[in-house]
Amino acid sequence: MKRSWGPLIVTLLVLVFFYAPLVVLVVNSFNESRFGGTWEGFTWKWYEKLWSADEVWAALVVTLKVAVSATLAATVLGTLAAWVLRSYATRLQGAHHGLVMLPLVVPDLLMGMALLALFVSVGMETGIVTIWIAHVTFCISYVTMVVLGRLRDFDTSLIDAARDLGASPWRVARKVVLPILMPGIIAGALLAFTLSIDDFVITFFVSGPGTTTLPLRIASMMKTSRNLPIINALSSLLLCITFIAVTLSYRLNRPASNS
């Protein structure tokens, strides 16, 4: 059959469209010019300015604290959720499944609004704890989705075999299930970590005075043009980190998709 060129051209154009703005951003982070319309020479000065921007590093510390702790909690909850969803076919799991998948579809704005409504209603002071709760909530669904994908290829006869050989359920979970699921769990955790570091909308609704995460800091820096090249530098660093995390998680999950 004759292959048509249309789809290939569209695909290539989309990739250019996806990456061109990011490439321009990285290039401009080394550009002497403030607005990056023209190339005025190579410079490290925006990175130097970023290095001495203490408020950025303070925000990074908050972001990392939230991301690490939220990822831990969401990974445990999400993995457990995926396991029961795969193991049982009751009405309870039907409802459970719906509840896990809904946050993936509901717009961030509404999730932020809902959590704010909760914290205001129970009179809870917004701050790092409320941000953590919010991040765990939206990360659970993503972890569950990734681990469920991994579980699809899971050979359950391994569990029966281990049980027949006299292993306790706890031992089976630790020695058989977890090692096999580990790549999926780590991939899910990396996804949760990336999403937690990136989240702006939900965090904006549930953050209090004094707790500023990195995206919140970036948003406030964007208001003054003096800071724009520093954001370029910061963005380029963040892009690097995301690319490394995603590539890592892809490599971990690859054996499953190959078999």
Binding site: P21, L22, G37, T194, L195, L228, V246
Partner: peptide, 23 residues
């Protein structure tokens, strides 16, 4: 990958692209 890079950064990249002094 672009979906996982910071949302604000992507919007910001477009703002500087479309800026009157942008490319």
């Amino acid at each position: 990958l672009p979906f996982l890079t910071n949302f604000l950064i992507r919007v910001f990249a477009w703002k500087s692209l479309l800026h009157p002094d942008g490319m």
